[in-house]
Design a protein around this nucleic acid. Structure first.
Length: 761
DNA sequence: AAATCCGCGTTTTTT
DNA sequence: ACGCGGATTT
């Protein structure tokens, strides 16, 4: 192994500060601070790691796993590490495998629980709750009634689609009962949360009764088609463990150590799963930060982490409070803000690094001023030698993005919106995946319905309705109904021919179930005549993209086969279903990142802007209004602010407006109440009243440059090059120049930041 | 089957 | 203001 790699892995990331000399030998502990070392070295028994932001948490977990494996005789496959996202899982696996390079994985599998699911590499189970459960169910689900290991995994849009058709089937108005609302309600019920989540509609039981009817039929239909939704993946494992203690115990003993990351985000079902896994040995390490719990609205239960010591009375508690990310002033701000919450575990971040510059609060007139201000700040940062990629702009709600993008484009600031979803949501991908699902699990009616007329076979609503009626009368899956000669009796013409074609196609696809994923995909592509299909989807502009997406899926399949030769189609489908970000947008070389406050969790940037720090937007009024416990909702909003603040390494700028447009209209806005919670002496204001001078003072170089400028002057700008001043507006902090640049065209610049130089001509 | 129009909702998002 | 889905139109 390459020593440099190991060293980098050991010291990796934020904690690289205080590392000493190269000590040979037991390098695992090198550079760890006291509590970090304690967490790594902890032996058996439960442990709670309260990990503040930037405290080297991931490093501690990966090092701990490495320690268990190399020093305590725990085999990699006896370790279960659970994360929330695939991204986190990937990262953890990579870092762990850098510490403990995997040996030949085939040697690692114990009997029984090994099999195809032994992952590439180390053999450690590092994954999300969902992938772990899917893996267990692929092996064990046949112990439960009615399911086979070829079960399909339905995503949220599959779920909503089915629910919608059930609503219609039951004779209700799909407008009055919206599928996503009903779907959420069902999900909430399944996850053991009830009315407190606001699904209870005003006129009560009538509507709930409808929900219940839909829910009952939904469960029935899912079972009939051998399909599980995301919630079911976890619930079925619980069911399995409850019904078959032997199976539960096999897993509880197989994993000698269980580690859960982001424990503050677990919901009640996940909590119960964890308890099962730790039931034998209580070798359970959970890691998280109650102050960063921002997913309460989707079922995360902060009590899980707050009550850990109640659940496990002998738990060791380790606090990681030393921060390796942010400057002192930024941490002060974070500490001050979060101290206003009551549902927390006391925690005080500190740093041995610099005090740094105080956070800045800037008042802006409206969202356009705000956006221009941010753009100007970024340009000024770049003018001083910084990178666009150092900067991130965070906001509470997506609609703030628009004005910001406009300003960034106008100013030529490269940016990248960090979004979610994407790939697997694309139509052509979903279609192909539906074909593959159908090949593996012919009972998958949702997949059937999706592709029966894709590409077009003349099968419309009428004939599908008839087939459906026939199938449900006989409790048959659609594909099975299709094989009954009577089924087509009432169907004529094009549709009849089309259904016959489709039936033949399904026969053709049947062998795919045992093929390598890429071969199976090829079979589908060939059978449906890709080119014709793509041509049909062509609405003029997207053809190239779609073809590229298909190719991308093919590459993914090939890659999957290479990685997991045992998985075949079954395994690949599982990954496609659970790995939404199959190829998440690679961080673009040097671009400012835009994202919501939720999306920024876990990331860090030298320069952080938080836009729209206004009452009714940062404590979001809907979050507060719709909550049963408004106080708790405010606390979650405050945590969101805290998460945003603690992303910043060097500089934190917060902006608010006095007026903001909303959906056409607009209104006066007030600074967020959270701003008043910032330390009074550690904050610089700007843009308003008495603090203007300070800020101007800071930028006196550009002020000086701006002072001597006049309309018609030729100027030079560090980024845009030469230009001519067309117009000068505003004064003091708001002094702007409209400049027509030779290369970049007309731009508005804030003189304060633009560092324009006059050229004598 | 494609084009067009109407009406609604518009916080946050993973699997 | 705007975009999306659904329904209506051709």
């Amino acid at each position: 192994m390459d020593w440099m790699d190991l060293k980098e892995a050991l010291t990796g990331g934020a904690a690289s500060d205080g590392e000493g000399s190269d000590g040979a030998g037991s390098g695992l502990l090198e550079g760890l601070n006291g509590p970090q070392e304690e967490a790594v070295l902890h032996g058996d028994g439960p442990m709670l790691i309260v990990a503040g932001p930037g405290s080297g948490k991931t490093r501690v977990i990966t090092t701990r796993i490495a320690h268990l494996v190399t020093q305590r005789g725990v085999a990699p496959w006896e370790v279960l590490a659970i994360t929330f996202t695939n991204k986190a899982a990937r990262e953890m696996r990579e870092r762990f495998e850098r510490l403990v390079p995997p040996v030949d994985s085939s040697s690692g599998s114990p009997s029984g629980a090994g099999g195809h699911a032994a992952p590439r590499g180390s053999g450690a189970w590092i994954g999300t709750f969902h992938s772990m459960c899917a893996r267990i169910l692929r092996r064990e689900i046949e112990a439960l009634d009615g399911y086979t290991r070829d079960f399909s995994i339905h995503d949220t849009s599959d779920r909503n689609g089915l629910i919608k058709s059930l609503i219609k089937e039951l004779g209700y108005d799909p407008k009055q009962f919206r599928a996503p609302v009903v779907g959420n309600w069902i999900s909430a019920k399944k996850n053991g949360r009830g009315k407190e989540d606001g699904y209870e509609l005003g006129d009560g039981s009538m509507e709930e009764d409808v929900f219940r009817q839909v829910a009952a039929r939904y469960e029935e239909r899912m079972r009939q088609q051998n399909a599980l939704d995301f919630d079911d993946l976890l619930l079925k494992v619980l069911e399995l463990f409850d019904a078959h203690h032997g199976i539960r115990d096999a897993y509880a003993t197989r994993f000698r150590h269980v580690l859960v990351d982001e424990y503050q985000d677990t919901n009640r079902v996940q909590y119960r799963l964890v308890r099962h896994f730790a039931s034998f040995h209580s070798n359970l390490t959970v890691c998280g930060d109650p102050d960063q719990s921002v997913y309460g609205w989707r079922g995360a239960d902060i009590r899980n982490i707050l009550d850990f010591e109640v659940d496990y009375p002998n738990a060791r508690v380790v606090r990681l409070e030393q921060n390796y990310r942010s400057t002192g002033k930024i941490l002060d701000a974070a500490n001050c803000v979060i101290a206003n919450n009551s549902a927390r575990k006391e925690k005080d971040l500190f740093t041995e690094g610099d005090e740094g510059e105080p956070p800045v609060v800037i008042e802006c007139g409206d969202e356009n001023d705000e956006a221009r201000e941010i753009a100007a700040q970024i340009r000024s940062h770049v003018a001083k030698g910084g990178r666009y990629g150092d900067c991130a702009i965070l906001y509470r709600a997506g609609f703030l993005q628009r004005a910001i993008e406009t300003a960034l484009r106008y100013d030529g600031v490269p940016y990248q919106v960090v979004a979610g979803l994407e790939f697997y949501q694309r139509r052509e991908i979903k279609d192909l995946v539906a074909y593959l699902r159908l090949a593996l699990n012919p009972a998958d009616d949702v997949a059937f319905a999706r592709v029966v007329n894709t590409p077009s076979r003349g099968v419309g609503d009428t004939s599908m309705g008839r087939l459906q009626a026939f199938a449900s009368a006989r409790r048959l899956p659609l594909s099975a109904a299709l094989r009954e000669s009577d089924a087509l009796a009432e169907i004529r013409g094009r549709a009849k021919k089309g259904l016959a074609e489709f039936a033949a196609l399904l026969e053709e696809l049947a062998p795919a179930r045992d093929l390598d994923a890429a071969v199976a995909l090829d079979l589908v592509l060939e059978s449906i005549d890709v080119d014709r299909w793509l041509a049909e989807l062509d609405d003029g502009s997207m053809t190239v993209d779609r073809a590229a997406n298909v190719e991308e899926l093919r590459v993914f399949a090939e890659d999957y086969d290479a990685r997991s030769p045992e998985g075949k189609l079954r395994g690949m489908l599982e990954e496609v279903a659970l790995v939404a970000d199959s190829d998440a947008p690679e961080p673009t070389d040097d671009a400012t990142k835009l994202m919501t406050l939720h999306a920024c969790k876990g990331l860090e940037f030298p320069y952080v802007f938080i836009a729209g720090v206004e009452d009714e937007l940062l404590p979001h009024e809907r979050a507060v209004d719709e909550a049963v416990e408004p106080d708790l909702a405010i606390e979650e909003e405050r945590r969101l602010f805290y998460v945003g603040i603690t992303r910043a390494e060097k500089k934190l700028l917060m902006t608010y407006t006095t007026y903001r447009s909303f959906y056409g209209g607009g209104r006066q806005t007030l600074p967020s109440r959270f701003l008043h919670e910032l330390p009074k002496d550690g904050i610089e204001g700007s843009g308003s009243s008495d603090l203007e001078e300070d800020v101007l003072g800071e930028f006196d170089a550009s002020e000086g440059a701006g002072a001597g400028l006049g309309v018609g002057d030729m100027v030079i700008h560090p980024h845009f090059g030469r230009g001519k001043i067309e117009q000068l507006t505003g004064a003091g902090i708001n002094a702007r120049a409209t400049v027509v640049f030779v290369r970049e065209g007309r731009k508005q610049l804030l003189l304060q930041y633009a560092s324009l130089e006059r050229m004598e001509s």
